[in-house]
Simulated assay, not measured.
Amino acid sequence: MFQPIYPMRTPRLALRPITVGDLDDVHAWQSRPDVVQWMAGAEPRTREQSRASVLAMANEDALRAEGDCLTLAATTEAGVVGTVELVWRSQQDRTAELGYVFHPDHGGRGLATEAATALLDWGFDRLGLHRVYARCHSGNTASARLMTRLGMRQEAHHVESYLFRGAWADQLVFAVLAQEWRAGQQQAGTAGP
């Protein structure tokens, strides 16, 4: 079993498992059309649908087996501002998929980048991952920019590769290898003003 020591701390965030007490904060973004617009099949959620989502995420506190998802609440003094997740896609290939959702009211301040960086650090250093990838709808430019900020390279642009809200959609795939991640983090740590 692989589980971070909680809370994982960054300069402005504490990352920890979701709890039932996070329902109000999670529902605040899951109920917004501008947040779910890029999620396949997702519509703004009712409070009861958010409750079911929170209960499911509350069980995603560790990676026990291939296919498991680790979902962490990104918290500030304002409460839960978003979530980051790592899905263990292949034990043999040491591969995982990164995901994230943040409340737009907390956007533009680098919080999603900070949270994803902490989770990627943990995945490469503690889980021993070789490669992490992330995917997004080609129209989700904010997500593509975040992946680029994280040092991920765009590996693919799959044309009309999946049905999205009744129409064929393009998907972008970004990835980063462990050695690329470490080199990028080392360079970021030694970069001057």
Rank of each mutant, 00 (worst) to 15 (best):
R9M: 14
T10M: 02
R12Q: 07
L13E: 12
A14S: 15
L15R: 06
L15H: 02
R16T: 07
R16A: 12
P17Q: 03
T19G: 13
D22E: 02
D22L: 02
L23Q: 09
V26K: 02
H27E: 06
H27N: 06
A28S: 11
A28K: 05
R32Y: 04
R32M: 11
V35C: 09
V35E: 07
Q37A: 13
Q37P: 00
G41I: 03
G41C: 09
G41T: 12
G41H: 10
G41F: 10
E43Q: 15
E43H: 15
T46I: 08
R47H: 08
E48P: 13
E48S: 13
S50I: 13
S53K: 10
L55N: 03
L55K: 02
L55C: 00
M57A: 10
M57F: 00
A58S: 07
N59R: 10
E60P: 10
A62L: 12
E66F: 09
E66A: 07
C69D: 15
T71Y: 02
L72K: 03
A74R: 04
A78H: 03
G79T: 03
G79D: 03
V80H: 01
V80F: 02
G82D: 10
R89F: 08
R89M: 14
T95K: 14
E97Q: 03
G99L: 00
Y100F: 12
V101D: 11
F102M: 10
H103L: 08
H103F: 05
H106F: 13
H106G: 01
H106T: 03
G107L: 09
R109N: 05
A112D: 02
T113W: 00
E114A: 08
A118Y: 03
L119K: 07
L120R: 06
G123H: 07
D125A: 14
L127W: 14
